[in-house]
Design a protein around this nucleic acid. Structure first.
Lengths: 226, 226
DNA sequence: ATTAATTTTAAATAGTTGTTTAAATTAATT
DNA sequence: AATTAATTTAAACAACTATTTAAAATTAAT
């Protein structure tokens, strides 16, 4: 048997005519295929805009399988939503805990947000919109939220305030300052392009500019000179 | 006839028994009732989450009337969406044109955003989400967008940059800085309350704090000290 | 007062929604 | 190889969707 690994992840097995080998194609589990397809569609269209048939079509699966594996559209959504929320926050918390100085950390946070908004442009508006529409159903026992208050960043902030190198700002004030300025222009990407007459390339340049302004502005404000 | 104007806008007319006067009760036009009801529901649930029956129920009108007056749910939505976009932008442009110094104007912008987010908490997330989902259908001939580039604020910014009192920042960079920090914490109001364990009152205090930080931070950055 | 136009109504349209069924197929276990 | 379990299928379900119809009720015009 000759095996050629291909670029796109497929494995092609050429079996000799007189071989008694059998090939078991271990394809992705149906459950996972559905969940990934649903994630894509939910992110793009939101819960209300997504139909069971949209998901089945995207996953290339029979319409009944969503309910076979996940019991209902709602249950599937809640599973996916929890994953997305955890991803979003774990990412943030792990940067807040990095052993670097506070200026670098602010820069890292902003760079990370910038990267995320480019790679997953639907993610933040999706989270915000779904929570805004129905705040209660989407917060089960997500205790990992409280982690932020015990991150290294929080400790660094308090120390800096204590020894007079940082301005007296609460953690809940400074983090939104860091996150909002970059995320906002991506949240309203189409509006901004329209208002200021920017092409895709021009927007990208503009977003880069904005990123640097935000870094400078926040550090200017937070870090006290002499 | 004795007329008493009431607090809630109702007018009560008491007609004397032997009077030959007739009272014509000019109630709100059905078309307007539907549009206003639709506006409320669309803002709360979004286009996909709103059904024709939701609108009819909210307006207390027959289900067929929406299509009688507006031809379709889509047409009604587009009309309302255009109104909302214009309201949002005209409000902003009129502040940008106010004959006050740039520091006051930044403060006014932030105060206005703060007020708006409190009074119409669904407005900004609604605009962003609907445009994000379907950018093309929602921009017909909205040329009023370009107004921003010719506001007094823009002129003041360029003058300040020219005479060295202001940092060299493009208009498209500074306006999102002003708007994002306040709007963002309201966009994610429920998330922020959850993360930092805030009650409604605590959130309001926190939002006030944030507002003042943002004012100071932006002015610090933009306005260069002698 | 009669006619014409407008507005409102209940009912029906055809299509879509999330979900279920029961049979068919495949895989795992004995 | 036979039996059991797990997966997949096509078809159906009732409820709901946006929209239309045609008749009724109301208002305006003559």
């Amino acid at each position: 048997m000759i095996i050629n690994q291909q670029k796109n992840g497929l494995i092609i097995c050429r079996i000799l005519p007189n071989s008694d080998l059998k090939v078991k194609c271990v394809t992705e589990k149906s459950e996972d295929k559905i969940k990934e397809a649903a994630r894509r569609i939910f992110l793009k269209k939101g819960f209300d805009g997504t139909t069971s048939r949209d998901i089945a079509r995207e996953a290339d699966m029979n319409i009944a399988l969503t309910n076979y594996y996940f019991r209902s559209k709602e249950k599937l959504f809640l599973e996916i939503f929890k994953d997305i929320l955890e991803l979003y926050f774990q990412n943030m918390v792990s940067i807040l805990n990095k052993p670097v100085d506070i200026k670098t950390k602010i820069s890292d946070m902003i760079e990370n947000d910038f990267k995320m908004m480019n790679e997953e442009p639907d993610l933040v508006i999706f989270i915000m919109n779904e929570i805004h529409k129905e705040p209660e159903r989407l917060f089960p026992d997500l205790t990992f939220f409280k982690q932020i208050r015990s991150t290294l960043f929080c400790k660094q902030l308090n120390e800096g305030i204590a020894n007079g190198t940082l301005r007296q700002v609460h953690i809940e004030n400074i983090i939104p300052l860091i996150k909002s300025c970059v995320e906002f222009i991506f949240l309203g990407k189409h509006i901004h392009k329209k208002i200021y007459g920017m092409s895709e390339e021009e927007f990208n340049r503009y977003a880069q500019e904005q990123k640097e302004h935000v870094k400078a502005m926040i550090c200017n404000y937070l870090i006290l000179e002499g």
